[in-house]
Design a protein around this nucleic acid. Structure first.
Lengths: 185, 185
DNA sequence: TGACGTCGGAACGCAACCGTTTCGTCGTCG
DNA sequence: CGACGACGAAACGGTTGCGTTCCGACGTCA
């Protein structure tokens, strides 16, 4: 029977290594070293660096993402932004997510995993938010979940991940207000 | 005297290699191979992979970015989006830019180069667009160039680079209209 | 014609990592 | 108590890239 604590140590080391050097530079030897574990222990569980990462990402996907229901479009958008900002400010996640997204452009398996773990979840949340807003009459029936997600999360991602800038007080409020205005335009 | 055609071949090979495998996996040997050139020719010109890339990015920065002046905020925003969409749809640029942005999070020298080559240029354009819009009375004086850029380019970047989705007909019009609404909100 | 410098190609020793195998240790079952 | 299996450590041969060095071929200029 494989020891659970060893498995956990490896999983944690993969996250750290992924954040520190990125997928491309990450090596099984480096993971084992960081986890304080023999290479054997890693290979006994996963057959490659890729399957290791796919496993982690899939586990992340299983968590699911709760859709906010604050009673207003602005409130829902704001809540979604809060969750996203929290994730993208996490020092490990803010390195790992963009790294894997770039890697996904070259590797279909990673692309699928990321899509299932992140993008599909967000898409679902956006769809629910829009449906509720349409029901309240805040948006026309023609509202498109994909474009909504672009307008809501895009600015935040650009600011936090691309520009890697600060998040001034009230920024999320402004983005939320702006996104609502953009959707209603 | 170093031969100019060899230098050009190396530069081109770096772009292709960067797009194909990314900065992390890129090797001097691979560049020389792709350029049909000896390793010696590369080392005679640049001292490392990093200085090679910094050189290319800086050359890119020197081009500058013209600010649109269409006479309306919507027109200017739309023009900026056109330029950005054109760049992000280019098969090489759409791989290289996100790759280097991720690398920038780990390497300050790359971060500075990218900032000078891309972000500062865009920031300047946004500032001009906002200034004109304020002069026309389309926006209040309080308009912030950074946030404007987030709202204008963010959704497009998210769609094209993160989600790697299509760009439906009329999408840029919608994003431009939405961005204007967001800025005025 | 001869000197010079760049060229591509090949090899150098070195380092890292690959994926596998072997070893002795330790903990857990039966 | 004994068999079993996972453990960390070390070594294996092989690959790739590092940065350097040497080579003969070629082009250019004096």
């Amino acid at each position: 029977m494989l020891r659970e604590d060893v498995t956990d140590a490896i999983r944690a080391a993969v996250f750290d290594e992924l954040a520190a050097v990125g997928f491309a530079r990450m090596s099984i030897e480096g993971i084992a070293r960081r986890a304080g574990v023999g290479k054997t222990a890693v290979y006994r569980r996963w057959k490659s660096k890729l399957s290791l990462v796919l496993d982690l990402v899939s586990a992340f996907a299983a968590q699911g993402l709760p859709a906010p229901a604050t009673g207003s479009l602005y409130g829902d958008v704001h809540a979604l932004l809060e969750v996203a900002a929290h994730a993208l400010r996490h020092p490990v996640a803010s390195q790992v997510i963009p790294d894997l997204l770039v890697e996904a452009a070259r590797n279909p398996e990673i692309a699928d995993a990321i899509k299932a773990a992140l993008l599909d979840g967000q898409r679902g949340v956006a769809a629910v938010i829009l449906r509720d807003a349409v029901a309240r009459g805040e948006l026309p029936e023609s509202a498109d979940p994909d474009r909504a997600l672009d307008v809501i999360v895009g600015p935040l991602y650009w600011r936090l991940v691309v520009v890697r800038g600060e998040l001034p007080d009230g920024y999320l409020d402004e983005v939320a207000r702006g996104a609502v205005a953009a959707l209603q335009a």
